[in-house]
Amino acid sequence: MSQARTLPPDDPAKVAAFEARIAAGESIEPKDWMPERYRRQLIRMMSQHAHSEIVGMLPEGNWITRAPSLRRKVALIAKVQDEAGHGLYIYCGTETLGVDRGELIQQLLDGTAKYSSIFNYPTLSWADIGVIGWFVDGAAIVNQTILAKASYGPYARAMIRVCKEENFHKRQGYEIVATLANGTPAQKAMVQDAVNRWWWPSLMMFGPSDTDSPNTAELIRWKVKRKTNDELRQRFVNLTVPQAVAVDLTLPDPELRFDPETEDWRFGPIDWDEFNQVIRGNGPCNRERLEARRRAHDDGAWVREAASAYAAKQRAKQASEAA
């Protein structure tokens, strides 16, 4: 990822042995031999995931200072803090593949790395905080529970830690939603409006339909991806529709209906034009998100340098005292 270099093609015998290990359900660890392509796919997937966690702090962080009760305030700070932690675990996991965190962060700030499209939408009311926990963390859980069995050890282990923490996020979100839905008319209207804005972008989180997703087949063979985008999306819809019904909220899809044969909630067509615009950088908040991260990074440079300089001085002092 760091330099363009021409590689000799992987030894087919080694690749076969590697794929046999994966088929047998073995875990690949940092020091194991792996095809270069596997390594690069993992770096791409893991760093995208980490970037998403970090950027994801911003839409929710936007409401910390306005959280309407002390209990909600601390819960939201803890959630955003968890997201920083998740980014950290996954960046550290990615580093085991031979790349520096600084390099990955630079790619994010340069705009060359991708992150989940959902975080390019604005949070416009307090209710958005509840709905994000319910939909976005809900969708992430559907994705991540599967990733916990991913073939790459450090990623799978990071995911176990992430999933434990994420369950609290989704519950917290749904509790906010339920409280608002059972609250004053103004609160109920607030949460219904938030649902109307976040539903479709949440479905888009699962990525393009499998027919349009070039990486899927290979990633599934390597047990880095365990289910297809469409399968995960359907699972999320099936879980979520009854939850909406339970709090008397409607979902903004006139075609939503239950199919008794497959026991799936069938849903209407997704506007992939919107999705493509957003991942291309033309979503409502893409620029603001990256700008915020750039500013934090640039403003923080003197702090990072100071810490390094201090450590170097201390080491020099200890060395000369020992001499």
Partner: peptide, 27 residues
């Protein structure tokens, strides 16, 4: 808590949030 998402490095984002949480808990 205004620092959330804007700290100089991830580890410090987490650290400052911890202090904020403790203080708000005490409050």
């Amino acid at each position: 808590s205004e620092w959330c998402g804007h700290a100089p490095i991830l580890e410090e984002d987490i650290a400052l949030a911890n202090v904020a949480l403790d203080l708000l808990g005490q409050a």
